[in-house]
């Protein structure tokens, strides 16, 4: 893929979360953040675009093997101005993933910078166990 390629059209539009499974109780719209996911030998990295989210307003849970990202956005409205023209809407970000690998929950690292969430999910190293066979 050429690096200088124009950002794709769909990028301009945020995908709104379809109501499925658990319903939301916050009176906010919810969007599905765009993500990049890649895997290394030791870990899985998840990078999500969540503009308006900071370290204090993001919730990450890992239950069984379902990873859920929640980003709460409190839109900063310019004071003394009224919205005259809108091309995008704001709201929370929600997305869940099912992980196929065993993740070492204690070593998960997460960081948010410039509205981008970065998750580092280390895999559990497969340990070979020697099973003693007792013969009588």
């Amino acid at each position: 893929m050429a690096e200088s390629k124009e950002i794709e059209v769909q990028e301009a539009e945020k995908q709104e979360l379809a109501e499925s499974g658990a319903e939301r109780t916050r009176a906010q719209r919810a969007f599905v953040p765009r993500v990049d996911i890649y895997e290394t030998n030791e870990a899985i990295a998840v990078i999500a675009d969540m503009p308006g989210v900071d370290a204090g307003s993001v919730d990450i849970t890992l239950e069984q093997n379902v990873l859920t990202i929640n980003g709460y956005v409190n839109e900063k409205r310019p004071e003394g101005y009224t919205l005259a023209y809108a091309e995008y809407r704001t709201g929370d970000f929600v997305r869940s993933f099912t992980l196929s690998n065993q993740i070492d929950q204690d070593r998960i690292e997460a960081g948010v910078k410039d509205g981008v969430l970065r998750l580092h999910l280390p895999k559990i190293k497969p340990t070979s166990k020697k099973i003693a066979v007792s013969g009588s």
């Binding site: 390629k5 124009e6 794709e8 993500v35 990049d36 996911i37 890649y38 895997e39 990078i47 675009d49």
Partner: peptide
Amino acid sequence: GEAFHRRERGSGKF
């Protein structure tokens, strides 16, 4: 040796 499973975030010039 690393590969993308998903690549939804756009990049490039605008």
